[in-house]
């Protein structure tokens, strides 16, 4: 019998295996949706969604219901309302979203302080807890990943054209409004389901960082999407392993790994740039 290494001990735990599979799936999902969210300037929107999710969870705890089951319908309703507000209001979007997320955070913290019996504690909700991933969450994430991949693949042309120019897409019969809502709902559900492992404060990093890293090094749209998902999934697994080994909170570990991924991509893109310009001299307009 060989001595069990700390690595094997951590990976051998059923909760850790659940967490790793969950992390791989949510990371890939965040990267995939993020690649469109970043282009459509929805990064801050996903941040607001994360904060509102805390309010949803708090309400669930307050009402004594399963937080995950309360969270999804709550987040969907919330996203639709915020979307309506952003579209109808004359105020700048970032200011509106700031109001929305700070208010949800305030209400959520007040709700949570009313429930003295909550065993998890606010720390886990804010920064993520790998122990929090259940079989139900895993099943939900898997279904979501399949749905998201199917929807984005089949509507890829519509997504790209809508992002480029709404009227150009509209002339081809692509309903910008419809795709906008569908994408926001998908993003909302993904954020809601990922929130346990990642934490409220850092969820938007899951959406933004892998996509930006991929953007820096991709020279085709297909590559951009795939690489963004791979970076998202890979960083999540590495971060969760790190969290398991060091007993540090899972969300920050993943985000730190993502940041190093981004840094590598940045260095790579800077290194490649001068050579690329020399290799492809500008064609006269």
């Amino acid at each position: 019998m060989t001595e069990i290494s700390p690595f094997t001990a951590v990976v051998g735990q059923p909760f850790m295996q659940r967490a790793l599979v969950g992390g791989l799936l949510t990371g890939a999902l965040g990267g995939l949706l993020g690649s469109f969210a970043v282009l459509r300037q929805l990064s801050f929107f996903s941040d607001a969604l994360g904060h509102s999710a805390l309010l949803g969870i708090s309400l669930g705890i307050l009402l004594g219901l399963n937080p995950t089951l309360v969270l999804i319908p709550f987040a969907v309703l919330f996203a639709l309302l915020v979307n309506l507000l952003v579209q109808r209001s004359q105020l700048p979007t970032d200011a509106l979203l700031n109001i929305v997320y700070s208010t949800s955070l305030a209400f959520a913290v007040v709700c949570l302080s009313l429930v003295t019996t909550y065993k998890g504690g606010i720390q886990q909700l804010l920064f993520g807890d790998i122990l929090g991933i259940s079989w139900l969450d895993l099943a939900l994430i898997a279904v979501l990943l399949v749905a998201a991949v199917a929807y984005l693949l089949v509507s890829l042309r519509a997504q790209v054209l809508v992002t480029l120019h709404a009227d150009l897409a509209g002339a081809f019969g692509v309903g910008s409004q419809w795709h906008r809502i569908a994408f926001i709902l998908l993003l909302t559900v993904v954020v809601a389901v990922s929130i346990k492992a990642v934490g409220v404060l850092l969820i938007s990093a899951f959406v933004v960082i892998p996509a930006c890293a991929s953007r820096l090094v991709s020279r085709r749209f297909g590559t951009y999407l795939v690489l963004s998902s791979v970076i998202g999934g890979g960083c999540a697994v590495l971060g969760l392993l790190g969290s398991g080994l060091t007993n540090l909170p899972s969300g920050p570990c993943v985000v730190i790994v993502q940041f190093f991924g981004f840094l590598l991509a940045l260095l790579w893109s800077l290194r490649g740039r001068p050579q690329r310009l020399r290799a492809n001299p500008a064609v006269t307009p």
Binding site: V160, D167, R219, R220, F221
Partner: peptide
Amino acid sequence: FLPQALPLQGRLPLT
């Protein structure tokens, strides 16, 4: 329909 310009042209890594 050909628009005047594509405002997000620079943001998409699209060939």
